[in-house]
Amino acid sequence: MTDTRLLLLSPDDNVFVLRGAIDAGETVALEAGQATVPVRLGLGHKIARRAIAAGEKIVKYGAPIGSATQAIPAGAHVHLHNVKSDYTPTYALEATSEEVPR
């Protein structure tokens, strides 16, 4: 049984969305076992539902939102450090509000 703190938005997704914060060191139940969360993750962050291969599409809401830049183990944080957006250049995601034109 999957941890109730994880939300699966679509059966086609390979990520779960956190319903709330999970502290570093906590264990979450995934469909295929358990994983320990190494760092505190906040509401809305994503973790891998299963192992995701480098280059594989990240699927959320049943639609691809990016590509894995490295292998991502089940239960690992899925974010800018291991995903390349297929839609927004990475430099735009890293820009501060002062750098963004108004």
Rank of each mutant, 00 (worst) to 15 (best):
N82W: 11
P64T: 03
V59M: 11
M1V: 09
D12W: 03
A29H: 06
N14V: 09
G75I: 00
Y61H: 12
T27E: 11
G75V: 01
P64H: 08
I65L: 12
G75A: 00
H79I: 03
L30S: 07
I47K: 01
A63G: 09
L9D: 09
E94V: 02
N14R: 07
K57R: 08
D23R: 14
D23T: 04
K46A: 09
V39H: 15
S97D: 10
D23Q: 07
V28K: 10
E26I: 09
A24M: 06
P73Y: 10
V59D: 06
A74R: 06
V28S: 08
K46R: 08
L93I: 04
E31M: 11
A21K: 09
A74M: 10
L6P: 15
D12N: 15
T69Y: 07
D12C: 10
L80T: 10
A76Y: 15
D23S: 10
E99V: 04
V100I: 13
L6C: 08
A53S: 01
S10F: 04
R40F: 04
A48W: 10
G33E: 01
D86V: 03
E31P: 11
I52L: 02
I65F: 12
L8V: 02
Y87K: 07
T36P: 07
I65Y: 14
E98H: 14
K84L: 13
A21Y: 04
S67P: 05
I72S: 05
Y61W: 15
E56D: 07
P89Y: 05
Y91A: 12
D13V: 09
G66C: 01
A21V: 06
F16S: 02
L41W: 08
T27K: 15
M1Q: 14
G75D: 00
Y91V: 10
T27L: 11
A54I: 01
G55I: 14
K57A: 11
Y87E: 15
P64F: 03
R102N: 03
A48L: 07
L8R: 08
L80I: 13
V37Y: 03
A21L: 07
T69K: 01
L9R: 00
A74L: 07
V39C: 09
S67C: 12
E26Q: 14
H45T: 06
I52W: 00
L18V: 01
E98K: 13
T2A: 08
A29F: 12
A48M: 05
P64W: 01
A68K: 04
A29T: 06
L8N: 03
L30G: 03
V28E: 03
Y87S: 08
